[in-house]
Design a protein around this nucleic acid. Sequence first.
DNA 1: GGTATGTCACGTGT
DNA 2: CACACGTGACATAC
Length: 677
Amino acid sequence: MGSLIPFLDLNQLPDPPTTSATKSALVTPKMEPKLEPSDEPLETHQPTQQQSLPQQQTPQEPFSSSTTPNILSKSQHTPITSQPSGISSEEGNVYSEFCRISELFRSAFAKRLQRYGDVDVLDPDSRAIVPVPQEDNNNQVSTLVVSRRRPPHQRSAELVRVTDLGIEDQRYFRDVVRRTRMIFDSLRVLSMTEYEKRRLGEPGLNRRVRGDLRAASVLRDRGMWLNRDKRIVGSIPGIYIGDLFFFRMELCVVGLHGQAQAGIDYVPASQSSNGEPIATSIIVSGGYEDDEDAGDVIIYTGQGGQDKFSRQCVHQKLEGGNLALERSLHYGIEVRVIRGIKYEGGLTSKVYVYDGLYRILDCWFDVGKSGFGVYKYKLLRIDGQAEMGSSILRFAESLRTRPLVARPAGYLSLDVSAKKEKVPVFLFNDIDSDQEPMYYEYLVRTVFPPYAFNRTGNGTGCECVSSCADDCFCATKNGGEFAYDHNGILLRGKPVIFECGPFCRCPPTCRNRVTQNGLRYRFEVFRSRETGWGVRSLDLIQAGAFICEYAGVVLTRDQAQILSMNGDTLIYPNRFSSRWAEWGDLSQIFTDYVRPSYPSIPPLDFAMDVSRMRNVACYMSHSETPNVLVQFVLYDHNSLMFPHLMLFAMENIPPLRELSLDYGVADEWTGKLSICN
DNA sequence: GGTATGTCACGTGT
DNA sequence: CACACGTGACATAC
């Protein structure tokens, strides 16, 4: 178990009431905590030994039966059904989620501090995280709205540092972050879709919607922003260096940077125990002409003094974020650095990259290029961290354009697909002499047995000539909606997706043919010391984007049993974990969110042979926190027994980060884990 | 002295 | 040199 190290306790905590044995306790040192100057660094605490924290499982939320979610209307003020604070956590999704997280944090606290012995044990409820109170408790409605009048929402002033999380906790927090971001993205897209629909009815409607802002507001009203109960200095649990964000508000939602616009986030002086503000994170966005970004070393300009056209027009003052940075320098407190960089090929023209922790070395008042005074801060990246996301982005860029110049040694092949894919698939190994992937024939698509095509009537397709719409026959097969948005992003996972196919009249550019158009990203099969052969992309992959098919030769159960005795490598599609089920699931937001009656498929009873012919997917590694999911898709035949295995991104995957799949547990047929390598 | 309310600074995404 | 927007910190009012 990791430790949460409080090093600045800003509130006097009440006396300990009795604590029940079932509750974890929040403990705090008896002595008055003090800020120590930088020559006595705060990190003198030793990390705790690894302890496993009992993990509470997410309560399974039953799907209530009611209507589909309503519009994301802001004008309508209809309160959602809410969970009054203090009610048992089994009842409400949001509330239980909060309790779970806060409980984890409290347990971590207790574990950490018990080592000191000299502590007070406090009633956990005294510091319980409570979701933002809903204004009303009218249970009959569940329209998604953003409340017009926000209850005052105090951010915590309690500074903590989270270190040495155990593997279980890392996995847990990663999952919380991933789910929250997925909900953010679903809401963002939903908000824009609703707007487009409304605009069809009201042509005069011309006000642009900001889906990102709306999504953040909805999550905030539901109390689903992460890490609001503590001010975390240092890294945020569940967020890795190199993680990518397309929207500024997303940084707020996950707690990486709590300011919607300002580049410096800090604990305000008014809340700080000694009346001094402390900086926790900054965003280097290129908005200040006096910034100098050399990667490991940054000369960062303070905030303020600009007019509305971002020109310096007055001197900056040592207040707010500027003062906070100066105080952080004084106390030797590290700050998180997020870079906003231009990047084409993403969802927006800019991405935010978490680049890790920096220490502030120096601070001075200088005359900027404009002639006005600005505060400058010299920051140095702390050693021993993973490589910076922003430099990986740059490196990937050079690999895309001139691979052999950027990396002269290590390429075994510049296209293992031998031009069978639209884009080359690189093969790279710079650590040993293994050349295994060279010896397989590259297979672009899964080979199905002929009778998969004969079994059912084939001629069922749509008659759309130009483009398919929501009332098209193929949309009906998918429960009256397409599975993808107009950019080919998977909106919601389903047991099976019916794409338009050879029996449809629509063109190949139809939006319902996402998985039929081959590779879009440049992949690299690479050799790794940890995972053997693995796969990574040279391009940024947006969450929900189609990656590739998992291709092989389909075998019946009997055939598979014979071949597996030969030691051939087989894949069992029914063993992949059903990650599609959580993709696009908004039941945490809409209390009346129902799982539509999608057509389901019978349990899959086939295996795939990848022992002679395989594609790039076969080299993907297994992970219990995968970044790729399997979605079954049908298009070229109608046999539900034999769907294609299509892979989609579960999160924004930065270039050169390894792709991973949850292959599931040991297979029931053979007892072997279905991974080839 | 605490809470409620108002004002402002802070860039962003389109 | 367009425009609307959300948040948090802080000032002010009570």
